[in-house]
Design a protein around this nucleic acid. Structure first.
Length: 205
DNA sequence: ATGACGATTTACT
DNA sequence: GTAAATCGTCATA
């Protein structure tokens, strides 16, 4: 599998969010263990106009600074006092857009993911579909935190996004509204969430 | 300096 | 179905 080109990420976020479905995130831990998973669910967050975006009205703070990087960087943020979420920045530099990675189908390193995910939940009670079926779950499974914020996915060999051989057909992609953004009024109703039809690792029905 | 709240997950009734 | 967990960020003063 080949790493995605920079030009893949510099396109508009809605296009990239759709195109990321079926691609593979690969991460080599400091320990040497390799984790990987196929992207099965994404959400697009536009910048200035999008009321649900951290960059609404071109808001620019220390937290969301990564959104202003050139496409292909990681944007990781901490929320609810206990969770992290992993995004891939899209578009050109200073045009803040990002694609939230909401769910992965685990491919490699499942035992490590299960270890990272087992806290209150017992290790042997965790099914494969409990490992990465949500934005905060996949961060926990991969060990993503603020140390991964602003990483350039195009330059860091330990964290990259790869192109799987086969392209997804449109009939295998479901487009719907985003999760958890009710406050965003009209923007909450826009079709900016994408997932692979009938994939068991998607976060919510 | 202070207060409200969140691009979530989990356990419990 | 509802609520707790838990704290950094942001807006207001």
């Amino acid at each position: 599998m080949k790493r995605l080109n920079r030009s893949f990420y510099t396109k508009p976020v809605t296009e990239v969010a759709r195109a990321l479905l079926g691609k593979v995130i690969r991460y080599q831990l400091p320990s040497g263990d390799v984790l990987s998973g196929m992207i099965v669910e994404t959400e697009a967050y536009l910048g200035a106009e999008d009321k649900a975006s951290h960059a609404y009205n071109l808001r620019r703070t220390e937290r969301n600074e990564a959104m202003y990087e050139k496409g292909g960087h990681a944007y990781v943020y901490f929320t609810y006092g206990l969770h992290h979420c992993f995004n891939i920045v899209t578009g050109e530099k200073d045009d803040p857009q990002a694609c939230l990675i909401r769910a992965l189908e685990p491919l490699a390193g499942l035992s490590v993911m299960r270890e990272f995910r087992s806290g209150k939940i017992k290790r042997d009670k965790l099914k494969d579909r409990d490992l990465c079926s949500g934005p905060a779950k996949l961060c926990q499974a991969f060990g993503f935190d603020l140390t991964h914020n602003r990483i350039d996915l195009y330059r860091h060999p330990e964290l990259e996004v790869l192109c799987a051989s086969n392209e997804l057909k449109d009939e295998d992609v479901v487009t719907t509204t985003r999760v958890g953004v009710q406050y965003a009024e009209a923007w909450a109703r826009k079709p900016l969430r994408f997932y692979i039809s009938n994939n068991p690792h998607v976060s919510v029905k």
